[in-house]
Amino acid sequence: FLEDVKVQARGELHASESKYHTQRRIALALQAELLQLYSRLETEDSSTTASTSPAEGAV
């Protein structure tokens, strides 16, 4: 009977742990996506600067 209680608890704990591990993977995927976006922003920022600087030089 005691064993029974333990098995039941393990079943519930597994399901909870599964949610937790999935959340961790979600966070990793989100971080990867953010990283990509930041580097895209930087590239765009620097290209904007590059294209405007000749004009500034002319003034």
Partner: peptide, 22 residues
Amino acid sequence: LPPHTDSHALVSRYRAEQFEDV
């Protein structure tokens, strides 16, 4: 679903939360 039927409601909720999270 785990073998213990008493846990089915709780575990089903966890499964639904995980689905929603992802």
